[in-house]
Design a binder for these strands. Structure first.
Lengths: 139, 139
DNA sequence: TTTAAATCCTACTAATCTGCTAGGGTTTAA
DNA sequence: TTAAACCCTAGCAGATTAGTAGGATTTAAA
């Protein structure tokens, strides 16, 4: 399951990316328009800032803004910050690899083999989509 | 994250499928060989039986056996029984659809659009793999 | 210089899920 | 009759999630 943190985080990023103006956007504005709890959203935007996707301006008139152009922000990095590893098991994770204790040999493990395929296909989707693609979602 | 239930369930199914003999295989044998807690495995095999993937024989000499040939058992059905919905959000689930309360329009939701792509690519992997493919994992 | 707006930070909590364990009941072959 | 096996319900400790509470700090503007 996708966490609400990730869901809200993506919506907030899209909200910010949609604005073409350069001045920062307040957490409260996003929270109101996207139906997100203010305090929860605060912590989400904070972690996006700490990971280098967003930057912030403190004090009155402050808020958050993107550090890069939307088309330069891949969804892989967004997902990794918000949701954590993309792989469904640590033993196939590229960035957070861990061996399974119960598995003597990875090379003959059926779960390993299957999850490598899932990881690759999911990774493909996330790296083909940038924040700009998310902004342009319209039916 | 993939649950241990799913991981153990797949390993157990592969263990059963690897045997070509027709007589049932005991939970205890699988638990020992795959390093799985016996009681936990019991409950997993039980749910696989209830969903029609496995059948069982009670009493002495009893155990579990496959109801269909391994190449006829798609991983989609295995995953759905063990892990639940394949989609990461209910609003893109084919079998367990639910509307998001916080989303006024799905058609313009960026999360929805992204998760449809993830769902489709993951579904493709799971439906291209059968239990027979899992059995033949060798390096 | 004060005030209000905004981010930043820490700590707590209720609810849910996961990965089991406990303790037996029931069925069947030998 | 006995032992082996599946079947079933209940409970439980630990982790995670989705927040809430309460304030500290920074900054623009009156």
């Amino acid at each position: 399951m996708l966490s609400k943190k990730t869901k809200y985080g993506i919506k907030a990023l899209v909200y910010i990316a949609k604005r073409e103006r350069e001045d920062p956007i307040q957490t409260s504005e996003i929270a109101k328009n996207e139906n997100i709890s203010l305090k929860f959203l605060e912590s989400i935007l904070l972690s996006l800032r700490k990971s280098g996707i967003l930057a912030s301006k403190k004090g009155k008139g402050g808020g958050y803004y993107l550090l890069k152009e939307p088309q330069e922000i891949k969804m892989t990095s967004v997902i990794r910050v918000l949701e954590g590893p993309i792989a469904m098991v640590p033993c196939v994770s590229l960035n957070y690899y861990e061996k399974c204790e119960d598995c003597p040999y990875e090379s003959t493990c059926p779960v390993h083999a299957l999850m490598i395929q899932v990881r690759d296909s999911t990774l493909k989707v996330f790296s083909e989509n940038t924040l700009a693609d998310m902004v342009s979602v319209k039916k």
